[in-house]
Nucleic acid binder design. Structure first.
Lengths: 227, 227
DNA sequence: GTTGCTTTCGCGCTACAC
DNA sequence: GTGTAGCGCGAAAGCAAC
């Protein structure tokens, strides 16, 4: 049986080495002949051009996609990067992403980077365009500014901070309040004591008296007098 | 006029025969041979180089691009649509966008739609992929759900409400506090007075009494007196 | 497992803009 | 030339049906 392993994914392994053509034809045949297993990791090379036509060995296209490693993957990366940098340029983005991708290979390094060198930049453009359409970023002459998923982060953060601030304020006020309540209670005790003293007749009649009045009024008329 | 639009390739429509090795070349030829003119909103072309192969007049690929009418444009549309529908499917999206685009033409209608029939769907996929990477949408088996710029709306509203609530609470506490402070001040005054009286010797050594009255009124008339 | 079709979408050629 | 991006071929993934 053939290979058909399935794997992949992640792997990303496809090498694209551009070299021998024999491989090419082989790949073609494989695909057709075996019919079954498709995916071959790839091959080919280039020739690019378009064309080619004649006779024999037509090349193919290469590929074997890096499953799951397309626009979606790059968009996410682009987004993270943009968000963390806030303001950057296309070149910086592309470089960063490329270097990141280049890190995880073993021997396909060269071929991989050759591949990425051309593919990533193109994908980054796609991602940027969508992001721009959503107003998540703004492009002004080469400079890319992250507006952020509209206010989300900023406002959320801002409001959280505000919340904390308010909580603290409430805490302080509450403590002060408690303090005052205690003092208030103490004074009420004082009043009570005075009253008791008075009542108990413990007071000296000719003593002193303090015709004293304290009136606190909030909203209405008050008549008060004494003689 | 020569607008040539016309045909298109349709290319896709040769089914994929993947069989023989000739397949490759065959497809190429088809494209070339039938290929002939493909729309051009603007003009055309020429035959540039690449390709083509034998025989007759093969045109190529071309297609003068519809500047500015690419991923960016479609992304915006896709986004609006998704947001308004909340939950839909790829097919619905594509159809909707296509019909919308088809509306604004004059005579190129046919060619345009033929063109769009193939191009738009592809673009919609691009847009969806980016959106998905940003978690703005979620795809579950053909169904596309709009998550909407992550919680933004919900959280923002929620936190604003929370803020208002807290502000009110602070207001109430503050008023109460002020109230207590005043009462406190009053009582301290009372204490002070008492102390002064005491000190002034006006007091009777055997104890003091303070026929005293403290009245606090909130809302209504009060008559108070003593003699 | 394997045809055979449909849905996604990787990838890169190449047209334009600057 | 270089930077951007329109555009679409055809491979891979998903789905039946055999």
């Amino acid at each position: 049986m053939d290979d058909n392993y399935s794997g992949d994914s992640l792997g990303g392994f496809f090498q694209k080495h551009s070299s021998a053509e024999s491989s090419v034809s082989a790949s073609l045949n494989n695909a057709a002949a075996f019919g079954s297993a498709r995916r071959s990791i790839t091959f080919d090379h280039d020739d690019t051009g378009t064309a080619s036509v004649e006779t024999n060995a037509p090349k193919k296209k290469r590929v074997s996609r890096m499953t799951g490693g397309g626009l979606r993957q790059f968009s996410a990366k682009v987004c993270d990067l943009l968000e963390s940098k806030g303001r950057t340029t296309y070149a910086e983005l592309a470089d960063y992403i490329m270097s990141e991708l280049a890190g995880n290979d073993s021997e396909t390094a060269t071929s991989l980077s050759e591949f990425n060198d051309k593919n990533i930049p193109r994908r980054v453009y796609d991602a940027l365009n969508v992001l721009e359409a959503l107003d998540i970023i703004t492009r002004v002459k080469k400079e890319i500014k992250w507006n952020g998923i509209p206010d989300r982060k900023m406002d959320l953060e801002g409001m959280k901070a505000e919340c904390v601030r308010m909580m603290n304020r409430i805490g302080r006020k509450t403590a002060y309040l408690k303090d005052l309540e205690e003092q208030f209670a103490d004074l009420q005790n004082l009043m009570f004591c005075n009253k008791e003293l008075l009542k108990s007749g413990n007071t000296h009649p000719g003593g002193f008296s303090l015709p004293f009045i304290l009136v606190q009024v909030y909203y209405f008329v008050i008549f008060c007098w004494f003689a």
